[in-house]
C-alpha cells in the first residue's frame, strides 16, 4: 500500500514537472505577496515580520491546497485516464496518499521562496527549534486544506470547483485573521477567527514561531474541521464516478 502511494505520488510529480511553468506559477504568487505586502511595511520589526511571514505561509498553504486539489482533481476527473485508473486494483487510500505526498512537495516548493525572502529581506527571526516546529506545524495544518480541496475536487465539476475555490479563499483568509497582525483584526474577526480552519491554522503557526499562546478551543475546532473535511472528501470520492458518459 505504502509503495503504491509513492507510485501514485511519483506519477503526479513527474506529470507536474514536465510542465515547469505550472511549478513556477505556484511558487511565484506567495513570493510576490511577501515582497509586496510584508517586506515594505514590517521588515524592521522582528516580531511583526515573523508573525507576518507565518501568516503569509498559512495563506499560501490554504491557497495552494485549495486550488491544487479543488481545481486539479476536478480537472483530472474530466480526463479519460481517470476512469481507467479506477479499474486498477487499488482502493481509495493509495490514490489519496499519493496525491497528498505530491501536494506536500508542491507546497514546499511554493513556500521556500517565502521563507528565503523573510530571512534575507526582513528582520524576522526564529530559533532553530522554532523553525523545526514551524515546518512540522505547516505540514500538520496543510491537512485540513488538502482535504477541503479534495472534497471540492471530487464533488464538483471543473468549472464549479474553480468558482467555489475562488469564492472561499478570500473570506477564509480575512476571516481567519491572516491579513492582519495577531490581535489587530476587526472585533468580529477576532471573535470568529479562532474557530475557522484558517484561524486555527495560523494560531498554531504563530505559536510555533513566537510567543503566541496556545488556544485549546481553537485547536479542537481545527481538529473538528479536519475530521469533517476528511469525511466529506472520502464521501465525495466514493460517490464520484468520473464523467457521466465514459
Amino acid at each position: 500500500m505504502t509503495v503504491l502511494a509513492l507510485t501514485h505520488a511519483r506519477f503526479q510529480i513527474t506529470e507536474l514537472f514536465r510542465i515547469p511553468i505550472a511549478v513556477f506559477g505556484s511558487a511565484f504568487w506567495p513570493a510576490a505577496s511577501m515582497l509586496a505586502f510584508v517586506v515594505p511595511f514590517v521588515r524592521h520589526e522582528p516580531a511583526y515580520a515573523t508573525y507576518a511571514t507565518a501568516s503569509m505561509i498559512t495563506f499560501a498553504v490554504m491557497n495552494t491546497n485549495l486550488f491544487q486539489y479543488g481545481v486539479g482533481v476536478a480537472e483530472d476527473r474530466a480526463q479519460a485516464w481517470d476512469p481507467y485508473v479506477r479499474t486498477l486494483p487499488a482502493g481509495t487510500a493509495p490514490r489519496f496518499a499519493g496525491r497528498i505526498l505530491a501536494g506536500l512537495l508542491m507546497m514546499a516548493i511554493s513556500l521556500a521562496p517565502v521563507v528565503l525572502i523573510a530571512a534575507l529581506f526582513t528582520e524576522a527571526a526564529v530559533t532553530p527549534l522554532g523553525f523545526l516546529a514551524a515546518v512540522l506545524t505547516c505540514v500538520a495544518v496543510s491537512i485540513p486544506f488538502i482535504l477541503m480541496g479534495l472534497s471540492i475536487g471530487y464533488a464538483l465539476p471543473q468549472k464549479a470547483a474553480l468558482v467555489v475555490a475562488q469564492v472561499l479563499f478570500l473570506p477564509l483568509a480575512f476571516g481567519g485573521g491572516l491579513l492582519t497582525p495577531p490581535g489587530a483584526a476587526p472585533g468580529f474577526v477576532e471573535d470568529l477567527a479562532p474557530y475557522l480552519p484558517t484561524g486555527g491554522a495560523v494560531r498554531l503557526m504563530w505559536a510555533a514561531v513566537g510567543d503566541f499562546p496556545f488556544d485549546t478551543a481553537s485547536i479542537l475546532a481545527l481538529a473538528a474541521w479536519t475530521a469533517l473535511f476528511a469525511a466529506l472528501a472520502i464521501w465525495s470520492y466514493r460517490r464520484d464516478e468520473g464523467r457521466r458518459f465514459g
Binding site: L4, T7, T14, E15, Q79, A80
Partner: peptide, 24 residues
C-alpha cells in the same frame, strides 16, 4: 482493461505509464 487511448497522460513516457500500471 484498455484505457481510452485519447486519455493517456500526454506528458508521461511510455515506460513510465507501463510501470505505473504494473505497480498495481
Amino acid at each position: 482493461v484498455t484505457p481510452q487511448e485519447t486519455g493517456l497522460p500526454a506528458s508521461l513516457r511510455v515506460g513510465e505509464v507501463v510501470d505505473f500500471v504494473r505497480a498495481h
